[in-house]
């Protein structure tokens, strides 16, 4: 890639993103040099695809929480880009235990300490966690 071919296609995926990353390209004498780039269309497409997929899953999960078929745990898990294995590690529980907490009836009976642990992992308050998906929230 020549330095005049380094793409400058601005990323527009999340607000406030102005990072100009460094890529390597050759100048007119064939010498390699670092060049800043605000982004490349091909790269932007696949980063956006990854985030769109997360957003779609989030919307589906939120609907299920509101419908009362899932607890808020899987919603906040997704919002923190975690999967079951990772959340279990952070919560200090087995995966099957965390999976049980996905059930609204089990979630309702969780101890204040367990709820506080989840809230800490998700970087929210316990009230935000338990209140999510309620009619007035």
């Amino acid at each position: 890639m020549n330095i005049n071919e380094v793409p400058q296609d601005q990323r527009n995926i999340k607000p406030g993103d102005t990072l100009k990353k460094l890529v390597y390209a050759v100048d007119k004498d064939g010498k390699y040099t670092g060049v800043n780039s605000v982004g490349w269309e091909a790269e932007n497409v696949v980063i956006k695809q990854a985030w769109d997929d997360i957003d779609e899953h989030l919307a589906e999960t939120e609907a299920q929480v509101r419908a009362g078929t899932l607890s808020p745990i899987p919603y906040f898990m997704l919002r923190n880009l975690m999967d079951l294995a990772l959340l279990a590690r952070y919560a200090g529980k087995w995966q099957w235990q965390v999976k049980r907490h996905f059930k609204p009836e089990v979630f309702k009976k969780l101890s204040p300490a367990m709820l506080a642990k989840y809230a800490e992992v998700f970087n929210i308050t316990t009230a935000e966690l338990t209140g999510f998906g309620k009619k007035n929230a």
């Binding site: 890639m1 890529v23 390597y24 390699y32 091909a42 790269e43 497409v45 980063i47 695809q49």
Partner: peptide, 30 residues
């Protein structure tokens, strides 16, 4: 689409210097 997109992300997302580190390596050889 997700599988394919991930390959491209690993290749071109921040941190590779372009072309999945191949340009950095070419710069090294030079």
């Amino acid at each position: 689409a997700l599988y394919l997109g991930n390959v491209v992300r690993m290749q071109e997302e921040i941190g590779t210097g372009g072309a999945g580190f191949r340009y950095i390596y070419a710069a090294f050889l030079q």
